[in-house]
Deep mutational scan, measured.
Amino acid sequence: MAAGGDHGSPDSYRSPLASRYASPEMCFVFSDRYKFRTWRQLWLWLAEAEQTLGLPITDEQIQEMKSNLENIDFKMAAEEEKRLRHDVMAHVHTFGHCCPKAAGIIHLGATSCYVGDNTDLIILRNALDLLLPKLARVISRLADFAKERASLPTLGFTHFQPAQLTTVGKRCCLWIQDLCMDLQNLKRVRDDLRFRGVKGTTGTQASFLQLFEGDDHKVEQLDKMVTEKAGFKRAFIITGQTYTRKVDIEVLSVLASLGASVHKICTDIRLLANLKEMEEPFEKQQIGSSAMPYKRNPMRSERCCSLARHLMTLVMDPLQTASVQWFERTLDDSANRRICLAEAFLTADTILNTLQNISEGLVVYPKVIERRIRQELPFMATENIIMAMVKAGGSRQDCHEKIRVLSQQAASVVKQEGGDNDLIERIQVDAYFSPIHSQLDHLLDPSSFTGRASQQVQRFLEEEVYPLLKPYESVMKVKAELCL
């Protein structure tokens, strides 16, 4: 049975990233139509530049190519590739079939990587351009969430054990800070992308030097003109047959890092959902379990974690691919890159769409948070109580021993009897502590235990987050809708 299948058929496997999760716009960027249309555009740009620099290419040939950029006979191309065992030459023939007058000058002087690699770089750039505003929107939604809850005390956790208090907004800023680093890295790697350009079979530009009869300047002009037509500021000066596969490492490393950030955020949300302090959106008709109707599973956060793990592992592909590119190139890269580049971007696209949807509907339960604080705060307040007693004339050592005994009794009630923490009640009825009984409410005010959390939130948002989001103001209103 021949390899390949009808990918629109229910009898043929289709990647869930495309069929179930990723956005239509990201799927289109990695589609065959987008790819092969870009090949034709690159052939047109090459012909236009070659004509401008004096090669015998007519206006009629150029116009014929322009008129057929979208006229792609995919069936013919597939048949040609089956016959020739070469995808680029299959599309040269297919393009030439609908451009008979231009057929002889299509791909003039070029090698397969002229269309293959340059198209990949265009796709990487455009895919990054799709991700950047999506990530900015996630940051914006979380920034709104953090600002609104900047002063809401909550129990902090280290080692997932109760620690000092923080605020809900401050905790959210930990998430935002990681995503801001990801946004900066995505922008950097996007701006650092260079075009492969017009380089020939081993990167020496020998074929173009021959076409222009040894004119170095025209060869350099050709490279520059096509690079500018493709919208790049610069091209690699040095290439082998391909652009260095280190570029793929750079791009997928940034995406993998984004995956790590999203995994951490969504894990926190899942843990908070278990504590009943916070939940992701839950639709009115949504079913959490087929057997347990009360369940409210954090399905979206779980999906993000599941896909983020996949995204983090994909960076190993370009690392290994770059390491086995012998001399000017081997074909070890080809099949692998067809999979890992598309999957990385479709996965990143999915987790950003999902995280935006989550961040637009996060639900906080202040009463649950308050109750958990009441359970733990008495123990945390013991040092403040000791200091207040010393100020009232008591002995630190005597007070410490009193607190120690009462704390152990209260802990026994919590752990052995399943009761509430009654340390404060014990202190309130103990005559030894009568000098500070009137101060206990103040000493137990949760806001006095959150330090500068709310001020940190305000400063972080104003100095770091809002300036970073400013270039994306025009796209901030787009909502994230999930079908599944």
Rank of each mutant, 00 (worst) to 15 (best):
A2S: 14
G4C: 15
G5K: 15
S9K: 13
Y13E: 08
Y13R: 10
Y13M: 14
A18R: 08
S23P: 05
S23A: 11
P24Y: 12
C27F: 11
V29G: 05
R33L: 12
R33A: 12
R33M: 14
R33F: 08
Y34W: 11
K35N: 11
K35I: 11
R37K: 14
R40K: 06
L42E: 04
A47H: 05
E48W: 02
A49Q: 02
A49N: 03
A49S: 13
A49P: 00
L55F: 03
D59M: 09
Q63T: 12
S67N: 13
S67W: 10
S67L: 14
N68H: 11
L69Y: 08
L69K: 10
E70C: 09
I72P: 07
F74L: 14
E79V: 11
E79D: 14
E80M: 12
L84F: 07
V88M: 07
M89P: 00
A90N: 06
A90R: 00
H91S: 13
H91C: 10
H93Y: 08
T94D: 07
G96V: 11
G96Q: 03
G96C: 06
H97V: 15
H97R: 11
C98I: 13
A102M: 06
I105K: 14
I106N: 03
I106P: 00
I106Y: 03
L108W: 15
G109V: 00
A110N: 00
C113M: 06
C113S: 13
Y114G: 03
D117T: 00
D117N: 00
N118Y: 00
L121R: 01
I122T: 06
I123G: 09
I123P: 02
A127E: 05
D129A: 12
K134F: 07
V138T: 09
D144S: 15
F145Y: 09
F145H: 06
K147M: 13
R149E: 12
L152M: 12
L155Y: 03
F157R: 05
T158A: 01
P162W: 08
Q164K: 00
Q164L: 13
L165E: 00
L165W: 00
T166Y: 01
T166N: 06
G169C: 02
G169K: 03
K170W: 02
R171N: 00
C172R: 03
C172H: 06
C173L: 05
L174H: 12
L174T: 09
I176R: 01
Q177P: 02
Q177C: 13
Q177R: 04
D178F: 00
C180V: 10
D182A: 03
L186I: 13
D191G: 07
D191M: 11
D192L: 09
D192E: 12
F195M: 15
F195E: 02
T201R: 00
T202L: 07
T202G: 13
T204W: 01
Q205Y: 00
S207Q: 02
Q210G: 12
L211H: 06
D215L: 08
D215F: 13
D216K: 06
H217C: 11
E220M: 13
M225C: 10
G231Q: 10
G231P: 04
K233I: 12
R234N: 09
A235F: 14
A235L: 12
F236H: 13
F236R: 06
I238V: 13
T239N: 03
T239E: 00
V251A: 15
L252I: 14
S253Q: 11
S253H: 12
S253T: 14
V254F: 06
L255C: 14
A260I: 00
A260E: 05
S261D: 05
H263Q: 05
I265H: 08
I269E: 00
I269G: 03
L275D: 09
E277C: 06
M278V: 13
E279M: 07
E279W: 01
E283F: 08
K284H: 10
I287L: 08
G288F: 04
G288S: 07
S289A: 02
M292D: 00
P293F: 03
R296Y: 06
N297L: 03
P298S: 09
M299C: 08
C304D: 05
C305K: 02
L307A: 15
R309K: 07
L311E: 02
L314I: 10
V315D: 04
V315Y: 10
M316F: 09
T321I: 10
T321V: 11
V324W: 11
Q325H: 12
Q325L: 14
Q325F: 11
T330C: 15
T330G: 11
C340T: 10
L346V: 15
T347Q: 08
L352C: 08
L352S: 08
T354R: 02
L355F: 14
L355R: 01
I358Q: 05
S359V: 11
G361Q: 11
L362W: 05
L362C: 09
V364R: 04
V364S: 05
Y365I: 06
P366C: 03
V368M: 03
I369A: 15
I373K: 01
Q375D: 05
P378N: 01
F379A: 03
F379G: 02
M380Y: 01
A381K: 06
T382G: 06
T382D: 02
N384D: 08
N384H: 15
I385V: 12
M389W: 02
K391E: 11
G394Q: 07
G394H: 06
R396P: 06
D398T: 12
D398R: 13
H400D: 01
R404W: 11
V405P: 04
K415M: 09
G418K: 01
G419D: 09
N421H: 07
N421S: 12
N421V: 11
I424M: 15
I427K: 04
I427V: 14
V429W: 11
V429I: 12
D430K: 04
A431V: 12
A431G: 13
A431R: 13
P435Y: 07
I436T: 06
H437C: 12
S438G: 09
Q439S: 09
L440A: 07
D445P: 04
S447H: 15
F449W: 06
T450D: 02
T450C: 12
S454E: 13
S454Q: 12
S454H: 08
S454C: 13
Q455C: 09
Q455E: 14
R459C: 12
K470N: 14
M476L: 15
K477F: 12
V478H: 08
E481P: 15
